[in-house]
Design a protein around this nucleic acid. Structure first.
Lengths: 235, 235
DNA sequence: TTAAAAAAGTGATAAATGTCATAAAACATG
DNA sequence: CATGTTTTATGACATTTATCACTTTTTTAA
């Protein structure tokens, strides 16, 4: 299986460039680098499955992953995406539960695995790091609650507009105002929490309304203020 | 305003009975007790509003609060309930953001306020406490993601069954198999994420199907296995 | 205790969204 | 590059759920 490749060059990964590790001492950084094992993962590769036991955290050095839950009838609900600098899998490591999501590579990714014991000992030893990680988790919780409310109360149309804007914030637009991430209609539907056909119809509607332009999976945002209005998004 | 009463008897509150504080030393417990100020709150009282700045945490000694977000059109989405031993408001204190929810007293409550600096210094000083709090947050995040998926994918009927079971788990049944919490139909709707009328109709349906019995706001669960099946709830 | 307010309940109807079937287009891969 | 597979697209239709209007019941507070 060529889906995973070991990359022994831990030293080339600059942990300090991720601000979660900013508070670490030289020695802590050094020991962290020693304990990590970095791997290259191809698109489609699954890092861990919902319900499995993971005993550590992955640091995303490069690439994009989607983190999703599988509903009762097998339908995916995308919880979030992870990109450069994000941590994946630490929730279940810390809560000492089985993984409550599946993590799948969307864009080829370079990941560094950090064993759980190292993570927890770091929390115990370095309170600044503990605080950063807690801050991160609390923010994620806030976002989850926000989106929960949106799914419960907003229409599919509103949510689709919101998701497009969210993708813009997360992955930016290129010079051409096109979203820098390419998702299938089904993946969009799994973010919005709706049927694929509904996304397809609403995207064409947005297109006829001159809010976006479509070119395969490339989505160009041409009227952002209107999208904000449709999505009832206030910053 | 008689809605809030100061209760100076901090010493009567036994922090150790809440396992989040189990790892604290004698001195830490003592200083915690000194920094707390305890107050009695009447039903309907709002502890803090979404968007306000709260600089500390409340420990729920007695009573029940609902924690909710207010959607675009003013509709409440209940995120969770807090009861004896729960912490409220620490998410925004730690993430250093404005409150992302409103907390309102449902059953008269005795609350102890813990200033943010005390909380953060405790995290810094006692790594066991830091770990407990982080574990708590991570579990909450897991639940939030679970419910997000349910709202996105399950029908209102399924969600209502699930919510009844959730309330059973959270507040227990009395000897008569009746839910130990009394909510309005609107509040139930605000948990389920649906219209009040839908909850009313579905509750009567559950009643005719002999799954529950209704007596005002008292809900008696008489066929729990069937409710589990309807809600597609697996533990 | 009683008047006013809030909540519960019900029916009719509208709107939103999902499902299914099918076709065309795009993509992947031997 | 041919072909099987996946994705996108579209229409018809079914279902779910929300909304509105109204009545009855319950709760609250003067």
């Amino acid at each position: 299986m060529k889906n995973i490749q070991n990359v022994p060059f831990n030293d080339e990964v600059d942990l300090l460039s991720y601000n979660i590790f900013n508070g670490l001492t030289e020695e802590e950084l050094e020991s962290l680098t020693q304990s990590m094992s970095c791997t290259l993962h191809k698109r489609g590769n699954i890092l861990y499955h919902e319900g499995s036991r993971i005993n550590g955290t992955y640091i995303v050095v490069k690439g994009i992953l989607k983190v999703y839950k599988t509903g009762f009838d097998g339908k995916e609900q995308i919880i979030r995406f992870a990109k450069d600098g994000d941590l994946i899998g630490f929730r279940s490591t810390i809560s000492d539960e089985l993984a409550c999501t599946t993590a799948k590579v969307v864009n080829d990714a370079l990941l560094c695995y950090l064993p759980g014991e190292i993570l927890t000992s770091l929390i115990k030893v370095n309170s600044e790091f503990a605080m950063s990680l807690m801050k991160l988790t609390c923010r994620e919780l806030g976002e989850s609650n926000k989106f929960l409310t949106d799914i419960a109360q907003k229409t599919v149309r509103e949510r689709l507009a919101e998701v497009l804007l969210l993708l813009m914030d997360t992955f930016d637009l290129d010079e051409d105002h096109t979203l820098q991430i390419s998702l299938t209609r089904e993946e969009l539907a799994n973010m919005v929490g709706t049927a694929t056909e509904s996304v397809i119809r609403l995207l064409s509607e947005f297109k006829s309304d001159k809010l976006i332009e479509l070119n395969g999976r490339k989505i160009k945002l041409i009227n952002i203020p209107k999208l904000i209005k449709i999505g009832n998004v206030y910053i």
